[in-house]
């Protein structure tokens, strides 16, 4: 028991890094999701194709491979990211691709009658998107975003493999210096990750319950 209590404060600096990576990559993923999601439903086929290639590229390969590519292979082109930035970029682009599917699905889920009513009121394409479609689609997206944020938190642990001293990396260091701590370290790691995930889990469940409010029925 003592070991467990000893470990906790030593993990905390790592937890701070993990939360930082989580927040930064979530912000990037959010932006990317909207840009790519709107691109997927663009009226220009070239935009649809480019965004589709991006999404398929990132969903078709592994997050860890993408992270390694950005950290180890990109320097070949003269672009050298810090481990933190490489992690944020890889996580943001990867989960942004998944989240863009949520955005696209939600936009398509808004019944066509809403589009027709906005055309009948002579709104421009952008007004229709901004005033009518997106506000409704946003509510449909929220549960999906909630679930992806949990996936994103889990994904942050991979940055330990490119030597960023996040929660997982801290745990490995402690375990390496004191092998008798092996069991307590990994148990505590799982517990701390779960504690960070807890608000996200509760949020996701809540969003799922509220999802259907204020959206037109087909």
């Amino acid at each position: 028991m003592e070991a467990y209590i000893n470990i906790l404060p030593r993990l905390l600096p790592g937890a701070v890094i993990t939360v930082q990576v989580l927040l930064a990559s979530a912000a990037l993923a959010f932006v990317v999701a909207f840009v790519a999601g709107l691109g997927r439903v663009s009226k220009y086929s070239i935009v649809r194709k480019i965004t589709a290639v991006y999404v398929e590229l990132f969903r078709g390969t592994s997050l860890l491979v993408q992270l390694f590519w950005i950290y180890f292979a990109l320097p070949a082109f003269g672009i050298q990211f810090s481990p933190f930035l490489a992690g944020v970029v890889a996580l943001g682009l990867n989960y942004g691709a998944y989240a863009s599917e949520v955005v696209r699905g939600a936009i398509l889920a808004v019944p066509s009658g809403q589009t027709e009513a906005s055309i009948a009121l002579n709104m421009s394409n952008w007004q229709r998107m901004r005033l009518i479609i997106l506000p409704q689609a946003f509510r449909i997206m929220l549960p999906g975003f909630g679930n992806i944020s949990i996936e994103l938190l889990k994904g942050t642990s991979l940055v330990s493999l490119i030597t960023l001293t996040d929660l997982t990396y801290k745990g490995l260091i402690i375990q390496n210096t004191n092998l008798s701590y092996t069991m307590p370290v990994f148990v505590m790691l799982l517990v701390v990750y779960f504690i960070i995930a807890l608000p996200l889990i509760i949020l996701a469940k809540k969003l799922e319950k509220n999802a259907s409010r204020g959206v037109a029925k087909a």
Partner: peptide, 17 residues
């Protein structure tokens, strides 16, 4: 041209939000 035309739909299509 649309600015001279208005329409009422079978299923209302009010904006629920």
């Amino acid at each position: 041209l649309r600015s001279d035309i208005g329409m009422v739909f079978q299923h209302f299509n009010l904006f629920p939000h």
